[in-house]
């Protein structure tokens, strides 16, 4: 098989570029701890309401300016409905669903993951700027999907 010289160069540049992407992604994911949300914990979706800590969804302070947010995403809302943290707080979100698949996204941040029945998914974010952050469901979950949202207030 015969390759034109320019095509050889092009394919080498292309493969090199892709290899660079892979390298950067690996370093960023595994050495800098920014791998995508891949929580392996499981839960019975039919018993979410009676399984701690999801029986009492809410914020739990776990350190100086660090919180665990145990939340449920259901058709069509999130629980708890009200959350407030001081500026500079780090919040570890842990979310599960008692019914269908939902999404969990805070626009303008990297918090964006799937909430699946039977699984718990997590992400961490440090809120350095004050404001009322929108939390939305970004996976179609039924007729009321577009109203499924809440906020977290950072003061």
């Amino acid at each position: 098989m015969h390759l034109h010289r320019f095509e050889k160069i092009w394919l080498m540049l292309g493969a090199g570029g892709l290899a660079l992407f892979i390298l950067l992604l690996c370093v960023n994911a595994f050495a800098m701890g920014m791998a995508p949300p891949s929580n392996m914990e499981m839960i019975d979706p039919k018993k979410v309401a009676e399984t701690p800590p999801f029986d009492k969804p809410g914020l739990k302070q776990v350190g100086d300016k660090e919180y665990d947010a145990y939340m449920t995403a259901f058709a069509f809302g999130f629980s708890p409905t009200k959350m407030e943290v001081p500026v500079g707080s780090t919040v570890n979100f842990h979310v599960t669903s008692p019914d269908v698949i939902h999404g969990f996204q805070i626009p303008g941040t990297n918090v964006n993951f799937m909430v699946m029945p039977g699984h718990i998914n997590s992400a961490t974010y440090t809120f350095d700027k004050p404001g009322e952050y929108l939390i939305i469901c970004n996976e179609y979950c039924g007729a009321g999907h577009q109203v499924m949202a809440t906020t977290i207030i950072v003061k």
């Binding site: 892709l18 992407f21 892979i22 992604l25 690996c26 994911a29 595994f30 791998a35 995508p36 949300p37 891949s38 929580n39 392996m40 914990e41 499981m42 964006n112 993951f113 799937m114 699946m116 699984h119 718990i120 998914n121 997590s122």
Partner: peptide
């Protein structure tokens, strides 16, 4: 399925690499 629970970060990266190929 990169943003999903239940699939480890390592396996995701393997599929990402194959995708870029």
């Amino acid at each position: 399925q990169l943003m999903e629970p239940g699939i480890s970060a390592g396996w995701k990266m393997i599929h990402v690499t194959l995708t870029l190929i």
